[in-house]
């Protein structure tokens, strides 16, 4: 058990017997009230988002989870295929609950996966990742307005907005949480 006030983003807890990941946590002190932790919880299995508020002094059941390094193999349209890099055992993770990972994960890359028993709860992405731009239109000539952007497609299929000077084949650094362009990477 853990105090709700000690919860942090990314921790796993049980609510009515179901595992949830804390995706947002904010402290609120209502006028004339005790301190509360306002939470947004996500069920890794169903993707369902649950809103919950608890007194920071309330106890919640945290679950022990472990991290494993796993290599992402491919997505077959229904499930993601992975391999445990310690045991070489292959397994799958459902698309539901991990939809946002489809265009972020690179085949062949190793990611840390959070397991509760044998249930994968979260695939953690580095905060910043370098991707290659695989499709980019040429900038329109004369378009020199500062801050002008265009759409490009990255190696994983992710489409994002980048400054107009970015060309096909170049590498860019992306914030995986916001899916936003950070900077050009010189190779």
């Amino acid at each position: 058990m853990i105090k709700a006030g000690s919860l942090e983003k990314g921790m796993a807890i049980l609510i009515k017997g179901q595992p949830y990941i804390v995706v947002e946590r904010e402290f609120v002190n209502p006028g004339k009230g005790s301190a509360f932790a306002r939470l947004k919880l996500k069920s890794p299995q169903t993707g369902q988002v649950l809103r919950e508020t608890m007194k920071t002094q309330d106890s919640v059941e945290d679950i022990s989870v472990d991290d494993k390094n796993c290599q992402y193999l491919y997505f077959d349209g229904d499930v993601y295929h992975f391999m445990d890099t310690d045991t070489y055992e292959q397994f799958t993770i459902p698309f539901e609950g991990f939809e946002d990972k489809q265009y972020l994960m690179k085949e062949g890359e190793t990611y840390r996966i959070l397991f509760w028993d044998h249930t994968p709860l979260d695939i953690s992405m580095p905060y910043k990742v370098v991707y290659e731009v695989t499709e980019a239109e040429d900038a329109v000539k004369g378009d020199t307005v500062t801050g002008a952007t265009k759409q490009v497609t990255l190696e994983t299929g992710l489409r994002i907005k980048v400054p107009i000077f970015i060309k096909q084949g170049e590498k860019v650094l992306i914030n995986t949480e916001t899916k936003e362009y950070l900077e050009r990477v010189n190779s």
């Binding site: 609120v28 009230g33 509360f36 919950e52 508020t53 608890m54």
Partner: peptide, 27 residues
């Protein structure tokens, strides 16, 4: 509403109200 409230001896009306208010109304 979907909150997991367990009644214990020190559960008070205003705490439960605040949990409802902060989860569903204030935001």
């Amino acid at each position: 509403l979907g909150l997991s409230v367990n009644r214990s001896e020190n559960t008070t009306w205003d705490d439960v109200f605040n949990r409802i208010f902060l989860t569903y109304v204030e935001p």
